[in-house]
Each structure stands twice: as structure tokens, then as C-alpha cells.
Amino acid sequence: MKYGVVIFPGSNCDRDTLYAIEHVMGEAVVPLWHKDRTLPSDLDCVILPGGFSYGDYLRPGAIARFSPIMQEIKRFADRGGYVLGICNGFQILTEAQLLPGALLQNASLRFICRSVFLRVETVDSPFTAAATAGQVLRIPIAHADGRYYIDPDGLKALEDGDQILFRYATPDGEVTEAANPNGSLGNIAGIVNRRRNVCGMMPHPERAVEVLLGSEDGKVVFESLRFFVQQQEYRQWEPLASQN
């Protein structure tokens, strides 16, 4: 499969993401520039990486949404392409209304940079298909604005639609207030859209891909995407084979 990683002015996790995909996952990946008005035609997944695009001016993600490449990413998502927003990428996707809700300043008012535990809430998504339901992942967060908020109707829609992918939890997988680092509603750390092809998550899976760096639990996100894309290719190939 092939990934593209978007670089906005102020992105700072683009290199880590490129490294994780190319050197750890062994997948093809190209950097994409925020001024690009076209995407390579053979992309399977676009990643919006972490950082502080446009200096977080106005609100995190509020200005990146107007980058020329975002029009293309909207079209790509409309066609069913996979889009993964990590940290600032998640903030951009909510501002661009590709994902519901918003990310507020952490309840502690502090920038938090540490490893947290996430419970996988559903494996019915291209981003979690290779995990097991209830699996606990150890992945770092690094953000000042990660408090997920959505109105009660929106929360109900997320829950009814099985759209919550990750919740902050204890190492044993219990979702408790003490395990919630930033005050997110319902300990929500990551969600998927209704169509299940656009995902946003505050934790950084690309920073947890090697034991040497403390954890390789983040690989499961990229393994899930690989699994999904392969399955899709298989499905496309099958009818042709049966015709012969």
C-alpha cells in the first residue's frame, strides 16, 4: 500500500511518521506539501501528522483547513480513501468538519507529554482491524489541546455508530477518570467517521513503533490499514478471477 504524509508549516511529526511507515512498516510513502493541488493517484492513505500547523493561530487546526491540499483530501475521503489525523491532524479534521466534535484545551491547562494506555473499543474499522477488542495499547500523547468535546446528541451518535476507536484507560483496560489525561468527554482518545474511512486520534502511534523507544503498540494502526487495503485489493481481484 502507499501512504502520503502532509507537511504543513509548523508540522513537526512528519519525519517520525515517514520513518515509521517506510523503515518500520516497510511501506511506500511520499511527503505531500500543503500547497499541492493534486494527490498522487495511487495513494491508499493520507496522514495529517502532529505539530502546530500555522502556529495554532486562532484555534489548533483552524488555519490548516484552508491549505490548498485540504480540498484534495476532502475529495480523497469522499472517494473512500483512508485519512488518518494524528494529534494536530485530528484537530485539523474536526475544524475541516471531516470528523465531528472539537478539541479543547486540556483540563489541566498544561501541555502533556507522556505515555498513556488506550483501550481499543472496536476492531470494526480500517484503523483497528488488526487489534483485538479490549486490547490495551501503550502509546504517547503530546498535546495542550486534546480534550475531546461533542454535544450529547453527537456523543450518542458516536456511540450508536460504534465510532469510538480508543478510550484512555488504566493499564488493565479500565476506563476511569484517573486514567483520563486531559479531561476528554468519555475518555475519548480516537474516533472514526460514520463511513469509517477517516480517523482522528490524539495519541501518536508513529512514536510507538519500536521496542527501543518504549513501545511498539502503535504499529497495530498501520497493520490494520495494511490488512484492510490488502483485503480490498483481494475483493477487487476476486470477480475478475471468477470470470476466467
Binding site: L58, R59, A62, T94, E95, P100, G101, A102, L104, Y149, I150, D151
Partner: peptide, 8 residues
């Protein structure tokens, strides 16, 4: 459209 985020 820009100055406020109506969600929050």
C-alpha cells in the same frame, strides 16, 4: 465560518 468554532 472562521472566527468562532460553532461546535464549542
Amino acid at each position: 465560518k472562521l472566527l468562532a468554532n460553532p461546535v464549542i
